[in-house]
C-alpha cells in the first residue's frame, strides 16, 4: 500500500516532533528566570541552539533534494522535514520568550514564521491537491484538453460560418484566442471573469430562446451550442488544472527565498547576541 510522507513509519516524526514540542513547553512553564523569560536564560540558550541547528538541518534538505546519486528515497527525509519543521514553531517561539521588537532578532523569527507558514501551505497543497488534480483531469492531460478545445473551436467556427455575421463575430471572438492563464491572480483564482466562450454561449442561448430562426439555422445553432458547452466545460477544467499547478508551485517561491534570508538573519542574530554579550 502506498504510504505518504505524512504517515511515514506510523507517524514516527510526528511523534518525535510532538515530544520535542511538549518537552520544550514543559520546561518553559517550569522555568522561572529572575528576569522575564527570554533568549538569554539557560533555557533560552538551549532552545535557541536546538532551533538554530534544526533550521540548518531543515535547510540542508533543500540541498540534498537537488542532488543526484543515491537511490534511497527521500520520503523519510521529507517526513522529518515537515514534522520537525513544525516543531520548530514551538521551539523558536519559546526561545523568544515572547519578547518582540524592531530588531534583527525578531526579523529572524518573522522569517522563520514565513518559512514555516509557506511550508505548511506546501504540505497541505501536496497532501490534498494531487487527488483533486487527478479527479479534475479525468484521463486527459492539460495538452489533450487544449487540443480538444482547439478542435472544438475549429468546429464552432465552421458551424458559425453559415450563420449571421453578428453570431459569427461572437463565435470568432470566443475561439480566436485561448483564454487560459493570464495574470498570477487570474491563474490562482481558476476563473476567467470575461470569458468570451461563456458570453458567446449566453448569446447563442438567448438567440435560440427567441425561436426566430429557420429549421436549418436552428440545427446549426444547436450544434454550435453543444460544441461551445463542451468547450466551456473543458476550459473550466483546464483553468482549475492551472490553478492547482500554481498552488503546488507558488509556496516554493516564498519557502526557498525566505529560507535563504532566514539563514542570513540567523547568522546576524547569533553574531550580534554574542558580540555584545
Amino acid at each position: 500500500m502506498h504510504e505518504s510522507f505524512l504517515t511515514y513509519k506510523g507517524f514516527l516524526f510526528l511523534k518525535v516532533a510532538g515530544l520535542a514540542g511538549l518537552l520544550a513547553l514543559a520546561l518553559y512553564i517550569g522555568h522561572a528566570p529572575m528576569d522575564a523569560p527570554n533568549g538569554g536564560t539557560w533555557l533560552g540558550y538551549g532552545l535557541g541552539t536546538v532551533s538554530a541547528l534544526l533550521i540548518l538541518w531543515l535547510a540542508w534538505f533543500g540541498v540534498r533534494k537537488r542532488r543526484y546519486g543515491g537511490v534511497q528515497p527521500l520520503k523519510g527525509w521529507l517526513s522529518a522535514h515537515v514534522y520537525l519543521g513544525s516543531a520548530l514553531l514551538v521551539l523558536g517561539t519559546l526561545h523568544t520568550g515572547f519578547q518582540f521588537g524592531w530588531n534583527v532578532h525578531s526579523l529572524a523569527y518573522a522569517l522563520m514564521l514565513l518559512v514555516i507558514a509557506s511550508g505548511i501551505f506546501g504540505t497541505i497543497a501536496y497532501s490534498r491537491l494531487p487527488r483533486l488534480v487527478a479527479a479534475n483531469r479525468g484521463r486527459q492531460t492539460l495538452e489533450a484538453m487544449i487540443a480538444e478545445i482547439s478542435s472544438l473551436d475549429r468546429g464552432a467556427r465552421q458551424a458559425a460560418m453559415a450563420l449571421d455575421d453578428k453570431v459569427n463575430a461572437t463565435v470568432v471572438a470566443a475561439s480566436e484566442r485561448l483564454q487560459l492563464g493570464g495574470s498570477l491572480i487570474r491563474i490562482l483564482s481558476g476563473r476567467e471573469p470575461a470569458c468570451r466562450t461563456a458570453a458567446c454561449l449566453a448569446h447563442l442561448e438567448e438567440l435560440a430562446a427567441k425561436g426566430t430562426l429557420g429549421p436549418e439555422e436552428g440545427a446549426t445553432l444547436s450544434t454550435l451550442v453543444r460544441l461551445l458547452y463542451r468547450k466551456g466545460e473543458l476550459l473550466h477544467r483546464a483553468r482549475l488544472d492551472l490553478r492547482y499547478q500554481a498552488l503546488l508551485d507558488i509556496w516554493l517561491h516564498v519557502h526557498i527565498p525566505a529560507t535563504v534570508l532566514l539563514i542570513v538573519a540567523l547568522i546576524a542574530h547569533v553574531v550580534s547576541v554574542f558580540f555584545f554579550w
Binding site: 534583527v104 526579523l107 492539460l142 487544449i146 487540443a147 478545445i149 482547439s150 473551436d153 480566436e176 484566442r177 485561448l178 487560459l180 492563464g181 495574470s183 498570477l184 491563474i187 492551472l242 499547478q245 500554481a246 508551485d249 507558488i250 516554493l252 517561491h253 526557498i256 527565498p257 535563504v260 534570508l261 539563514i263 542570513v264 538573519a265 547568522i267 546576524a268
Partner: peptide
C-alpha cells in the same frame, strides 16, 4: 494561439526570479 507554451502556465513567469529575490534581500540583511 492554442499551442500555448508551457512557460505561460508557470507561476515563475509572473514572479521575479527566486534567486534574484533571495540574494538581493540576503545581501541587504547581511
Amino acid at each position: 494561439a492554442t499551442a500555448m507554451t508551457d512557460d505561460m502556465r508557470m507561476v515563475a513567469r509572473h514572479l521575479p526570479s527566486r534567486r534574484v529575490v533571495a540574494w538581493t534581500l540576503a545581501l541587504a540583511i547581511f
